[in-house]
Design a protein around this nucleic acid. Structure first.
Lengths: 246, 246
DNA sequence: GGTCTGATCTTGGTCAGACCAGTAGGCTAA
DNA sequence: TTAGCCTACTGGTCTGACCAAGATCAGACC
């Protein structure tokens, strides 16, 4: 059984997984390809079908393949949701990681905005403008306002035309949406925030339009810093806000 | 069966996975906890053991739990290797993603260096100094030089004391090590690179020591930009370097 | 009484075979 | 030729079983 050669040492799951990984990484299995059936794979590798399913399921959660009921298993283009899942779980267990994730988000977004300055096209500009307008319209609503805020920032990342940045940002987005929302709740407490929210986003938008990476980055960073400042002040003045920061 | 309540809609794998996800996210299952046995889980959820194993295996590849032979399944602290796996697979199938990943790496590292300026302690400084020295010592060796380069950059991220940034950077590191290495191979072609490599890293180091985030960030960015420039020039002069970029 | 040892229970690891439900494609009948 | 049926195949799942080895506790020994 020369086919087993490369996977002889491992047993069971590892064997199947290694077998498939090899083909995947070597490129002999490309997106769109359909794998041989579970039964064939099982007999081919000398394992039982449940084991094969474990391996296929593993690849599924990694977003590498897709198991289609009664059709077969096909190789897919790497899917983002993996990162989403991972971050969701990771964050859930280490709530203190949230500040950390925020840092990563800032990292991604600041890089994205630089790229956006270079790569943004008309459609991107239009989307940015739309979402910017939305921020102004929803300035007094917590939910819609938070959503608008989020959409604007997402538009920035989209405009970077970088899949990886988009993926990473997206996977952290879910965790941070409530952060946008809670920030918006502060508007009631700090009237000056209205100006901050509208003007800051406007400045960010302008910098992108001007295709000025340095200014865009700096403005965005300042925007985050000010947001932090407001939040800190809020914590001082309104303790029960802290419970939502986890 | 009120226990099934939340997972009634799904079936099989989804049911088990959802059941566990719920507990994991809600925090009723914390790192270190041991799950109930596969058999119990199976009867509890009304599915067969192979299905339970699929779900557990899925969580395993996500780095959420660890299945210990003849011991049980325990919840672990989220593991980085997932991201590694993902990026490895993703890159294998979409080589064009490499530039993109590089962008993300720049993003992470530039944010990290800013944090490093604020948070780095003596130990961090020492590590940076050590790795910086190593770069000078190994300037003429491709392998060791690439490694030293990599270590220095990793030290920067470590000095940020941000778990998330470290994790993200680490998961992209494997893919980019060869990038460091191949960059070092250019040293032969471009003698001026020696100065670039040594002086640039030195400047970066100085900026961190000076705890000047802006300067550090700018210097690091410039460093990457120059590296890109060298690589671009190399591609023009030496085509077979491109084949190794996948 | 305390400790050591071994039988037993439990756990994961795996297999074999079976049934269901649709899907796809070949074959047949109109 | 074409519409429709029929079978082979696919994934989805279950059942029940066996193995090897860690965990546990009872009983024997010191």
């Amino acid at each position: 059984m020369e086919l087993k050669r490369a996977a002889e040492g491992e047993k069971g799951f590892e064997k199947v997984f290694a077998f498939l990984r090899e083909r995947l990484l070597a490129g002999s299995l490309k997106p769109g390809d359909r794998l041989i059936s579970e039964r064939e794979l099982a007999t081919l590798l000398g394992v039982s079908r449940p084991i094969v399913r474990e391996a296929l399921r593993a690849l599924t959660v990694l977003g590498i393949v897709e198991i289609r009921d009664r059709i077969g298993t096909v190789v897919t283009r790497p899917d983002v949701s993996v990162l989403n899942d991972f971050f969701t779980f990771a964050l859930a267990q280490q709530a203190d990681m949230l500040d950390d994730v925020m840092q990563a988000r800032v990292a991604i977004e600041c890089q994205a905005i630089r790229l956006a300055c270079e790569r943004a096209n008309i459609a991107d500009f239009e989307r940015l403008q739309r979402t910017l307008a939305k921020i102004g319209e929803t300035i007094d609503e917590a939910d819609a306002g938070g959503m608008a805020d989020f959409e604007f920032h997402r538009s920035i990342v989209t405009a970077s035309h970088s899949e990886t940045l988009t993926v990473l940002h997206g996977s952290m987005a879910g965790l941070l949406t409530h952060s946008h929302r809670s920030r918006r709740e502060l508007v009631q407490a700090f009237p000056s925030m209205k100006t901050y929210l509208i003007d800051d986003h406007r400045r960010i938008f302008d910098a992108i339009i001007a295709r000025d990476p340095e200014r865009a980055d700096a403005t965005l960073r300042k925007h985050f810093a000010i947001g932090d400042e407001y939040r800190r002040r809020a914590v001082v003045g309104d303790i029960d806000k802290t419970s939502a920061s986890g």
